[in-house]
């Protein structure tokens, strides 16, 4: 008659996977959190990353991976609900607050983070960091943008070209 109450198909413990950073640090996280990465999702679905194996991530160092996983762990429950259509306003506000604080970090970390999000194909994280970087550089002059992003100084040729453009379009910065 009544269905068994514990029949959710799980043994209670969430499945864990191990990720290995470029400097050989091992991170054990829930598969649901790591699966926010489209790159890792297929490997995890195929049963990879469990046991002692681990999934090597040669392009991501431990400091960056730790930050990436902090994001994934926070966002995994909402993602599991299919974008959280039934999430409460409080939940959404909490995630927004987390996101705002999350990107309030040193620029070099931000830089590593956006590359990692791109490599691991974590759409939400990439979008979040891209927005932050866009906010940092919008409205700045070309030279200010170059300095902000740590570009090397322009070559004399590039500088001459920029000067010519500024003569023509300088009114946009007055």
């Amino acid at each position: 008659m009544a269905a068994p109450e514990s029949g959710d198909g799980n043994n209670g413990a969430a499945r864990m996977v191990t990720l290995i950073s470029s400097d050989n640090t091992r991170f054990e996280v829930e598969a649901a959190a790591a699966s926010l990465s489209q790159t890792l999702q297929l490997t995890i679905l195929d049963g990879g990353g469990g046991g002692g194996d681990g999934i090597p991530l040669p392009n991501v160092d431990s400091a960056t991976l730790s930050k990436v996983l902090e994001y994934c762990i926070k966002h995994a429950p909402a993602a599991a609900n299919g974008g959280a259509p039934n999430a409460t306003a409080v939940d959404r506000a909490e995630l927004e607050r987390f996101d705002n604080e999350f990107v309030n970090i040193d620029q070099s970390v931000l830089y590593s983070l956006i590359m990692a999000a791109h490599n691991l194909e974590i759409e939400g994280l990439q979008s979040l960091v891209a927005k932050k970087v866009a906010d940092m550089i919008k409205g700045k002059s070309p030279m200010e943008i170059r300095r902000t992003l740590g570009f090397p100084d322009p070559t004399p040729e590039e500088q001459a070209e920029m000067n010519a453009h500024m003569l023509e379009y300088g009114w946009a910065y007055e």
Partner: peptide
């Protein structure tokens, strides 16, 4: 792509970066 659409001069500035 996340530059503000109501301030197109900011995209012009970006186009001149390199």
């Amino acid at each position: 792509i996340r530059f503000p659409p109501d301030d197109p001069a900011s995209l012009l500035g970006a186009a001149l970066v390199c």
